[in-house]
Structure formats: C-alpha cells, structure tokens
C-alpha cells in the first residue's frame, strides 16, 4: 500500500523484494492538491493484495504535538502582517444568514465613496450574487465560493488578496459565510471580527452561540427600524453579549433607514486612524533605525579599526 495515501491497497501484488520496476501515479488529496509519486515495486499480478512480508509491521509512536489549526493560523499571521505593513484595516463580518450584512455593507460603501479606498471579499457557499451587489456600488469585490465549506479560512483570503490586492491605507471588508458557529474558529488575519445580529433573530443569540460573540470586538444590532414589530429586548441582548464577552462594543443601527449608521462610520474612522498611526510609527521606527546604522557606518569610517586594543 502507498505510504502517503493508502492507494493501491487492492489489486496490486508485491512479494517483498525491492525492484526498480515500479509505477507512478497521481491522486487528489483532500486539500485539492494533486499528488504524484512513484512506487518502486515490481507488480506481478492484479489478483493478490499488496504485502510487505520482508518488513514486519512494528508499531511505533510519533509525537506530533501540533495545533490542528496551526496551518490556518500561519496563513492568518501572514495576512495580518501584510495588512499591518500596508495600513489596511481588515474586518471580518460574521452573522447568521439574513442578518442584513450585505445591505449594511452596501450602505457603508456608499457612505465611504470618494473618501476612503475600500475593497471587499465576499464569502458564500455558492453564487456571486453578493459580489454583484457590491460591484453595483462601483467597489471592487472578489467572490470566494467555499463549496461545501461553512466558513472562510485564511488561505482562501490569501488567494483572494492575490487576485485583487487592496491599496495601501484602505479598508477591507471580508464578508464571511452566513453562519454563527464555524467562522468563529478561523482567524483570517483580520483586525477585528464584527458580528451583525438583527432584531428579527432573538435576543438570546449571544447565549446560544457564545463562541462567535466571544470572538467579536463589535456587535452591530441591525434592523432596529423593526423593533416596534418584534419581541426583541435590546438591553437584554447587550447583557447577554457582555456575559460572554464583557468588553464587546455595541452599535444599534438600521441599514434600511440609515439610523445609527453614523456611529458605525465613526467607529470605522477611529479604527482606521489607529491602523494608519501604527503604520506611520513603524515607518518612523524603521527610518530611525536606518539613521542609526548610517551613523554607525560613518563612525567606523572616521575612526579606523586598526588602532591598538587593550587585551
């Protein structure tokens, strides 16, 4: 049997000796990568199962001790570093389906038009309907279809960034797949997760899906224009959210009427300002360091190194 993939366990014969006559084949891994590799075996027939008589199976233990999300986290950390270096404020918008994320995004993009450069990555299992809604505002949007996947991961975001790089000092909205469970576990490299909860969903959501509300920095309570028509206690939802995440910030708004949107735009401006300030600081630190090194080089030229040393 092939060591890497388990292929060839049926219909291949091997009688224990090594032989240069082998076969090469390929197969597709679960990550979609095509693996191609050779078997240095002599195949005698197709009716006997694959055996390794000369190599008795001795079980041994291999210690791995690695985080299962390590690969995602390493892509996320690359993304985060890139965002920080380029002064991009990346926000991961999460919610259940139908909370009004895309409508809110469209309203936000229209409000920022002509003031701040913005890019959008849209995640959905199927269709590019959301990206088309975004593009209708004149903003560039990359649609990522996750297929069977219930969340975006950091590698998908990295691929989307390769397709359309955000301009330095800009806003990047990453609209995740509508799902209040899985996106909580996958860091994309964003500055913050923003959870959108609409008043038609019920004020107990933070208790039912605590991981998401714990992971988010800001909760936007959307569709507040519908409050007179639904049983939704705004104070209770805020209490519930702060039970799982005492530091969570909250803004109430309506993407349809525009009420409260100004407060959201202020929040964005504040966060964006902080990102730009950090970038300016790191550029200033780099410039200072360059100046120090230049001064050291200068000093070495001024005082030749062939002076006698005390030993």
């Amino acid at each position: 049997m092939c060591m890497t993939c388990g292929c060839g366990s049926e219909g291949v014969h091997l009688d224990g000796h090594k032989d240069d006559v082998g076969h090469e084949h390929e197969h597709v891994g679960t990550d979609g990568v095509v693996y191609r590799h050779a078997h240095r075996h002599h195949h005698h027939g197709s009716d006997v199962s694959h055996r390794h008589d000369a190599e008795p199976a001795v079980p041994r233990e291999i210690r791995i001790e690695r985080d299962i999300l390590a690969k995602n986290d390493s892509f996320a950390s690359d993304n985060r570093q890139r965002f920080e270096q380029e002064g991009v404020l990346a926000l991961n918008l999460v919610s259940s389906p139908g909370s009004g994320k895309t409508s809110l995004l469209v309203r936000t993009l229209l409000a920022l038009q002509g003031k701040t450069p913005v890019a959008v990555i849209e995640g959905d299992q199927q269709t590019s309907l959301d990206a088309e809604r975004i593009r209708a505002t004149g903003i560039a949007a990359v649609q990522v279809n996750t297929g069977k996947g219930c969340h975006l991961d950091a590698q998908m975001v990295q691929r989307a960034l390769a397709e359309q790089a955000p301009t330095p000092e800009s806003l990047l909205f990453i609209e995740n797949v509508g799902n209040l469970v899985c996106p909580a576990a996958f860091d994309l490299g964003e500055a913050a997760k923003v959870v959108v909860l609409s008043v038609t969903e019920g004020d107990d959501k933070p208790l039912k899906y605590p991981d998401m509300f714990r992971a988010a920095r800001l909760m936007l309570i959307n569709k507040c224009d519908l409050l007179p028509h639904v049983q939704f206690d705004v104070q209770r939802v805020i209490e519930n959210a702060r039970r799982v995440n005492p530091g969570i910030e909250v803004i109430q708004l309506s993407a349809v009427t525009g009420a409260g949107v100004a407060e959201w735009l202020d929040w964005l401006e504040r966060e964006f300002g902080a990102v730009k300030a950090r970038r300016a600081d790191s550029v200033a630190v780099l410039k200072r360091r360059v100046a120090e090194l230049e001064a050291q080089l200068q000093a070495q030229h001024t005082f030749p190194a062939n002076e006698p040393h005390d030993l």
Binding site: M1, M3, C5, G149, H151, D153, N179, C182
Partner: peptide
C-alpha cells in the same frame, strides 16, 4: 459543523508526518 475542515486538517498533518517518517499505516 467545522469538524470536517478540522478532520481534513488532521489528515494533512498525518500525510506530512508520513512523508517525513516513512510509515505506511
């Protein structure tokens, strides 16, 4: 729900270990 992605991630790590350590099962 994301257990599928996690299981795939475990399998990838097992695959890497198989390449590095040369085990067949």
């Amino acid at each position: 729900m994301h257990e599928l992605a996690l299981a795939e991630s475990v399998l990838q790590m097992v695959d890497e270990a198989a390449r590095a350590n040369g085990f067949r099962r």
